[in-house]
């Protein structure tokens, strides 16, 4: 009998079988994961600002001199919409934003539209063409400071701040009056709206 310390015997093929099963499970998981995410933008994530105090800002007004600060609007529900003249989706949602600002004016809601990476003159022409809301403050954002503070990935992007200054909602992409109104109804009822992916958005002027 050989004088050797034998390794522990193991049933043949067990390791291979379990390895193959694990690999198969992973392949299926990856396939399903890809399939479920097809067409989605992985950058569109819940904002870490949700349920947290809104970043303070002071931005120059688009028309005339002066500026506006978030603190100037304290106590009201504030809707901050980032837009640009080069953004097709912004053009499409503009009438809905104006209509919503008008409809909710008596319920303590203020709209602030902040021009994002746009020539102020181009933004003014955009508003001249599509119309301004009397109940919306139009502003610019030099150096994209406010956009960065709010974690803007693309435009249009719309944030909702409640009367206590907490970010309670975010709409990604082109919205409409029904979505905006639904968000405001939810927030005015004292609830958090969360994040809604309403439509497409654009990240740069030369994007197709």
């Amino acid at each position: 009998m050989p004088d050797v310390v034998l390794p522990r015997a193991r049933p043949r093929g067990t390791l291979l079988r379990w390895g193959a099963i694990a690999g198969l499970v992973m392949v299926v998981a990856v396939t399903l994961s890809f399939a479920s995410r097809f067409g989605d933008n992985p950058d569109m994530v819940d904002s870490p600002l949700l349920d947290n105090p809104a970043p303070a800002f002071t931005v120059p007004l688009l028309d005339g001199g002066g500026d506006v600060s978030l603190s100037d609007l304290g106590g009201e529900v504030v809707v901050i919409n980032f837009f640009a003249s080069w953004c097709v989706e912004c053009r499409k949602e503009h009438a809905d934003l104006v209509a919503t600002a008008e409809a909710f004016r008596d319920r303590g809601v203020r709209f602030v539209a902040i021009s994002y990476q746009d020539d102020p003159e181009a933004s003014r022409r955009f508003l001249d063409e599509l119309g301004r809301s009397e109940h919306t403050i139009y502003a610019t954002d030099p150096g994209s400071r406010t956009a960065i503070a709010y974690g803007v990935f693309g435009i249009p992007e719309t944030f909702f701040i409640d009367g206590d200054g907490v970010v309670v909602g975010k709409i990604i992409g082109e919205s409409n009056a029904l979505v905006l109104g639904d968000a405001l109804d939810t927030i005015l009822a004292g609830d958090t709206y969360g994040t809604e992916v309403a439509g497409n958005q654009r990240s740069a002027p030369d994007e197709d």
Partner: peptide, 21 residues
């Protein structure tokens, strides 16, 4: 494969959490 799955599962929720309108 696990890295890919993890990346998709943990790094993003593109479907949103709104009211569904």
């Amino acid at each position: 494969a696990a890295v890919l799955v993890g990346a998709f599962i943990f790094l993003g929720d593109p479907e949103g959490t709104g009211t569904g309108v």
